[in-house]
Design a protein around this nucleic acid. Structure first.
Lengths: 134, 134, 134, 134
DNA sequence: GTGGTCTAGACCACC
DNA sequence: GTGGTCTAGACCACG
């Protein structure tokens, strides 16, 4: 099972956090299905070229959130996410991100219309060129 | 000159970063005008209840960004950033914040319409109740 | 990795600035290669007999200039500056230093020839006895 | 007597030092002649738009160097600079400035020829457009 | 009074 | 182990 996670070396965001965020998205959005066996800590650490400590932390954090289940000697599986929970999770995450952005606009005294215009441009662009390549 | 800055003790965001962000906003949004003499580092440290060094760092970082100008023995001033640059600065900041939010939506497989709807709700709410209360 | 930096205790030039200048030179002249892991701030502070904070500042300033890259928990690396940029950097630095010197000559009403003669003497001397001894 | 001194607000160089350097040059190069009565501390402070304390320091430092003489109740005069001393002074000043520049080149591993070429370009330019205008 | 530098030492987050 | 933040407090230089 290959997990499509991108690491940004130059970001100040901690490694474990980048990975957690992306893996969480993959699970909640259903791109990795319930019951899937994830790669072992070592495998993933290897393929992402980072420390096992970092991956262990990621798995553990997500297990604490109830998104993963670990079975001794067997491996780590994707736990079930109820449809309702999934929707709430998605919505909450997006609301938070958008709220931050809107507050930024507010604090800079941007008008409502300017903010909307810029938003529409970005949506337009991102949703028509969905896959980025390096 | 009183500087309206709010510190959130419980935020994981570093103190100096909270102050920097707010002061930067005040300057590039024009709420503090070019040439204004800011409070001395000791004064501001006192009124924000933090260490002199923290304020020193804030002033220095913003000076490195070209937003402040300081003269030993005299004080710290708001530097002149051209109107054009100010606009660019504002736009860049907002574009970055919105892009992050939109990408979050994309990664969660949210539809364009859902994202727009949520955005409009937030804008509606934030722009009609601009002052937060605790 | 040992970093050849000399500190002059008696110079009025601030410690952090002496170190910054020398480390910057080492990097942009290519004497320390891209990707090199620098000593930890504690190590360098120890070997230069100065405070951790002073070294921290040096590393941070150079990171802001784009010459270093640091990752919490991992260490501080020499960032990749393109060959082109490196050359520009070198040239700019030297041009600035020479311009200052020439302007000094001008303000003292030195003739063009006198200035050139003195310059040639100094170059002759410095480039044939490159290593200073104490 | 008007003293042609330019202050650079944006330079990190201390005010008193900028003024001292320029006044010293004017005296040593003979542009202000021996015996000339300089403006009073207040006058000069006024015309340069800086503090009297700053000017007092300048006059005092230059008096300590033997370039000025103060007579109670009369004012501050330019002291005599012997021809020999003047030449030595000029040469020393220029040698110091050029040495710094050459050492910068050396530390960046610039070749002798590169350094010479850049120097010649700068001299060419500066000596043919001697008066800067703002 | 102002800012500029440097110190020792603490505690936290990350790998 | 690494770097990141914050503290208190000292001393100097500038205006």
């Amino acid at each position: 099972m290959r997990i499509p996670i991108q690491i940004n070396e130059h970001s100040p965001e901690p490694l474990y956090h980048q990975i957690e965020t992306q893996l969480r998205s993959l699970i909640i959005s259903g791109q990795i299905q319930e019951g899937t066996l994830l790669p072992s800590i070592r495998e993933l650490a290897n393929s992402l070229n980072c420390s096992v400590i970092t991956i262990r932390r990621v798995y553990q954090d997500l297990e604490n959130e109830g998104l993963l289940r670990t079975r001794q000697g067997t491996g780590t599986f994707v736990a079930g996410v109820g449809e309702q929970m999934r929707e709430k999770f998605k919505r909450d995450t997006v609301v938070e991100a958008l709220t931050t952005a809107v507050e930024t606009g507010l604090s800079l005294h941007l008008s409502e219309d300017e903010l909307k215009t810029i938003f529409m441009e970005i949506v337009q662009q991102k949703y028509n060129q969905p896959k980025e390549r390096k």
